[in-house]
């Protein structure tokens, strides 16, 4: 009986003390919280340092995605590069887990600190490639998959990728 009375008093005292602490409430959206650059929010598709689409439509993001909310179709461009003919993310299903970014072998798909994606209409949460593709390289400034990979594209012949020797002359018997 005595102990519960003390407890009541202590509670009232603590409530009183809180009246003098600084308020935790943030006046969002007027006041924006700080989000780290690697915060996992809205997904974007980036471009390589030369300004071309980084995505090669390898499908690894789609298969890594736990709610299966990424769908795309590969195509081959005239210059030999693989690209996504369409690339669709259903953000109404996306759980912002970042698995797609981890799976991406070309650093094309990246998560950004933007999380403000509310819509009245769920259909508006379906993003196509034109909504996802940004103009810059995102977090990775220098990586260009085609400079590393052995696939020949216009402007980069066989033997011109990273660490590659000139194409072999098969008719030569020299050692």
């Amino acid at each position: 009986m005595y102990e519960s009375f003390i407890s009541q008093l202590r509670t009232i005292w603590q409530v009183l003390l809180h009246s003098f602490t600084k308020a935790e409430t943030v006046q969002y959206p007027e006041e924006q919280p700080y989000l780290a650059p690697r915060y996992r929010g809205r997904i974007v598709l980036t471009r390589d340092p030369d300004g071309d689409e980084r995505c090669v439509a390898c499908n690894l993001c789609a298969v890594a995605c736990p709610p299966d909310c990424i769908a795309l179709q590969q195509g081959v461009r005239e210059d030999g590069r693989w690209y996504p003919e369409f690339f669709r993310i259903n953000f109404s299903r996306c759980i912002m887990c970042g698995m797609c970014e981890e799976a991406c072998p070309t650093n094309a798909i990246q998560l950004t600190p933007d999380f403000e994606m509310c819509e009245y209409d769920r259909q508006s949460m379906v993003y196509e490639k034109e909504h996802l593709l940004i103009d810059g390289p995102g977090k990775y400034h220098d990586y260009n998959f085609y400079r590393v990979s052995g696939l020949k594209i216009d402007g980069k012949d066989k033997g011109e990728a990273l660490n590659e020797a000139e194409p072999v002359d098969v008719k030569s018997l020299l050692p």
Binding site: A62, C65, D68, C69, I70, L72, R88, V126, E128
Partner: peptide, 10 residues
């Protein structure tokens, strides 16, 4: 099998 919730989302 991937893309089940996005294939038809358009």
């Amino acid at each position: 099998f991937s893309g089940r919730t996005a294939m038809r989302a358009n």
